[in-house]
Simulated assay, not measured.
Amino acid sequence: MSKAKRLIDILLYISAKKKFTAQEIADDFNISVRTVHRYLLDLSDMGLPIYAEQGRNGGYTVLSSTLLPPILFTEEEAVAIFFAFQSLHYYRDLPFNTEMKSVSQKLYDSLQQEAKKKVDTLQSYIAFWNPKRTIETPLLTDVLEAIINQEQLHIQYESKSGITTKHVQPIGVYAHDGLWYMPALHAPFEKILLFRIDRIHSIEVSDKNPDSTINLQQWLESDYEPQQPIRLYVELTREGVRQCLSEPNLEKAVVRSSDGTGFIEMMIDKGELHFISSLFFRLGQHAIVKEPQELIQLIRKQAHDLLSIYPEQRDI
């Protein structure tokens, strides 16, 4: 048996046993005690925290450690994990960013030469691209730690109305389009609101709440129910259909006709009108809003405001 294989077997053995003697290893692996001591020194040099206890009843103890025993991956599995890390390459801020770079480098270094060539080639042709944001998210790790500890927070949050203090119970974080978001139960309204983490200026732990009513996965998979439902009906040209199919919030609601045109008919929350008004204003004649009247008025106001900036020039 090779030394490398023997070391792995002993590492798995002592990681499970935690407390042991050199004689026990010698007996179980049919090797000399002197060889055991040599192997233990090698494992200690590799970073395994082994503590030697002196005396008649002495032995060895593996101290509490975050080191994991070896996991054997196939070459294809290692390449897949490497590219999973690469998919986050375009995010400016990541939790555990240093550790992820370290793991990625270890995986790459562990590959055989042919596999490294494959990875190098694939990197020239595959990219999990996101717009590389210049916006910093300095509190991302702090927010994530608070979520893991199930803590309620007072946050200083920047919105259209300025910087205000909000009392929230975060349920998780997720990344989208190069930015990080935090859905959280907003205490005054007892409903889940969405906060951009880069807009959080400060956080302060206010309390612990072990009885969270919903987690991130449940929230993401839950059916959307508008708090103030209002009917949206929009007629779309062929170009309007194409554009709306690229919008995640509208894609499922687009109904296409045989000639390529279509329409959107769905219930939305009244609080979203300002958000979607900008979208339909941008689509112009390719998306004709029929309902609700409040949305039509918002689009008219946007058009009026734009015309006031660019008044018609009269010939003198």
Rank of each mutant, 00 (worst) to 15 (best):
M1L: 14
S2E: 15
K3V: 13
L7H: 14
D9N: 06
L12T: 05
L12I: 11
S15W: 11
K17L: 08
K17R: 15
F20D: 06
T21P: 12
A22S: 15
A22T: 10
A22N: 14
Q23L: 11
I25G: 13
I25R: 12
V33G: 14
L41A: 13
S44G: 06
P49I: 02
I50D: 13
G59A: 09
S65Q: 01
F73M: 10
T74I: 12
A78L: 04
V79D: 14
I81P: 15
A84Q: 09
Y91N: 02
P95A: 10
M100D: 01
M100K: 05
K101S: 05
S102L: 07
K106L: 08
L107P: 03
L107T: 09
Q112D: 15
D120Q: 09
L122D: 14
W129C: 11
V143N: 02
I148M: 09
Q150H: 00
L153W: 03
E158F: 00
T165L: 08
K166M: 02
L179G: 12
L179R: 10
L185W: 15
A187M: 05
L193Q: 05
L194I: 13
I197S: 05
S206D: 05
P210Q: 03
Q218A: 05
W219N: 00
E225H: 12
Q227E: 06
I230P: 11
L232M: 02
V234N: 04
E235H: 03
Q243V: 07
Q243C: 02
L245D: 03
L245P: 01
G260L: 02
G260R: 01
F263G: 07
E265N: 03
E265T: 06
M266R: 11
M267A: 13
I268W: 02
G271T: 00
L273I: 06
I276V: 03
L283F: 04
Q285H: 10
P292D: 03
P292N: 00
E294R: 10
L295H: 03
L295F: 06
I296Y: 00
I299G: 01
I299P: 10
K301T: 09
A303H: 11
H304T: 15
D305H: 11
D305I: 15
D305K: 14
L306N: 00
I309C: 15
